[in-house]
Design a protein around this nucleic acid. Structure first.
Lengths: 335, 335
DNA sequence: TTGCAGTGGTAAATGGTATTACCATCTTGT
DNA sequence: ACAAGATGGTAATACCATTTACCACTGCAA
């Protein structure tokens, strides 16, 4: 509860000096003894600066908002953790909004942006982001980072090596003799989805193949979404022998749906998922995955806010290349 | 960027009136027309109150800090989501600290508490919480809620029906003929761990059994911790036919370790875990679990902050009773 | 002795909101 | 006609840290 002027009084100086000592103002000239008196008073009174006052004065809150699709999805949780760690390193805190929670979350976020409570905004939400949020962010001109997606907004864009990952997954299946490889994609229209679709297509076309219209199905990132999508996919193209899945959690859903349809993985259908999971080896069918640098992706999202160049950068995080982790969800086909 | 006095000027009133209109001060008397002029000015200028100023003036930040053990653990993620939803309902935002991130996280949290940036603190972290954090919280007298654990602090305590859950899990195994039932517990010394251990013991003793010293192993909540613990447990008591596991994620680790040891679940060893997982049915061995009201648990943690301030309440969340979900990790033993 | 630079600070303005105390004008009752 | 109350507000201040402009004093040189 001690304030700056309490310290000042206790140290026998004016509050300006205390402030400048705390903030290491290089233009401040004080004697060594005075500085030490101030420091001692701070320690004695267990002083820490009032953050609201600081924020009011400096118009910085040291808070970064992040809008995430679904906090319980381990993939996104890992991204968040990277972002958190990086934020801490910069002495900022992250405040998480879950777009799964709908209007309440969006409204709260919008009001915080409006009130200047957020220094920056990171949007992971691949779905529809409230117009209110976007409008506020634009009108307050706060730096914005878009993860994977792309919106009609002046913002930084951070991506993963999506095309490479999807290409790798597809190639792996091709090497095992598969020719009819379907694609269980993420939400349509998003930048990273397109990039991965490109990877899938190009791997196919490198092998002299081209997919049919029904070979791809766009869907969400959850387990249930994956299950539904798989049913659609196999209905549209019933001759697929393999599937590339863009999200590990929807791969689990797909696995469940295949189970219900009485199809065995990998005997009847092979599968590779993008993104690894800590328990991928413990699944009913140990899942072959493409590991991506998710933690570093989260870090990059925050780091870019502290870079010099202000305008609309586009970064692809390549801390580590997409890496195939072979388990038991891919069978070899005899040609 | 519009301020209160901009609105006041635009509406031709003093800023006091605007503030009181916004905050619905019941003691304010204004004519209907004036009120509407104010409201219109607010809408026209797209005004929203500066949060830093508001916070400085009122010494409330509308921010709640929550310290969690591991954000990527789906169990904790679910709790967080409940807490988030409830916070939003109260027009507050949650700011998450991951104790897995160590000192950086603790330091940041401590400085935010010191600076008055947090209205309340929720501690889920079952491990060691930084003394600095606790000391600050105590000295600033901010309301604190402890989840599951118990510390030497004046705080609210929120619990799950732990004893009941462990009793249920153990009874289920007893009904299937098991007599040597081990316990893969969570961290020792924590209130909820003790409660669950009690449940395990009492179920055993209801059946006229009593566990041996080596039948229980205390450990952390992660996959790897679970794997290590299982090895210890089977080393200490190699005649166990069943295990109750206090955390679903460590159950996965235990499953992995059993795999490596060449033991089959449930043929060689049966297992029941406390807490359900969205993909529990898709595991190598579909895991029988005890589902608990985690979301409501998170809600309760926040809600209690808004109850009529009784000091040091103790709540057990019973939104739904612990519920056994049978899958295929329990075998019947012939007596 | 005046002039000037360097040393070690101080005082005051600023940021935007909430809140208390107070006040001017109009209406009503007698 | 005059006090009392109701009506519809206003003005001032506190909250606390940051930052700019300024100042008093000492020492040294010319």
């Amino acid at each position: 509860m001690a304030t700056l002027s309490d310290i000042a009084t206790s140290a026998g100086v004016s509050s300006g000096v205390v402030s400048r000592v705390i903030n290491k103002d290089p233009t401040l000239r004080v004697s060594k003894e005075t500085r030490e008196r101030v420091l001692k008073a701070i320690a004695d009174l267990d002083y820490s600066p009032n953050i609201a006052a600081k924020s009011l004065r400096s118009s910085r809150s040291d808070l970064i908002g992040i809008l995430v699709n679904d906090v319980t999805n381990p993939i996104y949780a890992e991204i968040m953790r990277g972002a958190q760690a990086c934020a801490m390193r910069h002495e900022k805190a992250l405040i998480v909004f879950d777009s799964e929670m709908g209007e309440a979350s969006a409204a709260r976020l919008a009001s915080m942006i409006g009130g200047g409570a957020l220094d920056a905004l990171i949007i992971q939400s691949a779905g529809e982001v409230s117009d209110q949020v976007l409008a506020r962010a634009a009108s307050r001109k706060i730096p914005t980072v878009l993860l994977q997606a792309e919106l009609e907004v002046d913002a930084h864009l951070v991506l993963l090596p999506d095309e490479e990952a999807a290409h790798l997954a597809t190639s792996h299946l091709l090497e095992h003799g598969h020719r009819r490889i379907g694609c269980l994609a993420t939400a349509a229209g998003l930048r990273f989805t397109e990039r991965r679709v490109d990877g899938w297509r190009s791997a196919l076309s490198d092998a002299g193949l081209s997919p049919k219209a029904g070979d791809i199905c766009y869907t969400g990132a959850g387990i249930d979404a994956g299950a539904d999508a798989l049913v659609q996919l196999t209905k549209a193209s019933n001759d697929l022998t393999a599937i590339v899945c863009f999200n590990a959690l929807s791969a689990i859903g797909a696995l469940r749906a295949l189970n219900r349809l009485g199809k065995k993985v990998p005997d009847d259908i092979s599968m590779v998922a993008i993104h690894d999971l800590p328990f991928a080896d413990m699944l009913h069918t140990p899942l072959s995955t493409i590991a991506m640098p998710l933690y570093e992706f989260g870090e990059a999202a925050v780091d870019i806010l502290f870079s010099e160049d202000q305008k609309r950068s586009e970064t692809v995080v390549k801390a580590s290349a997409p890496k195939l982790i072979e388990r038991q969800s891919v069978a070899t086909i005899n040609r």
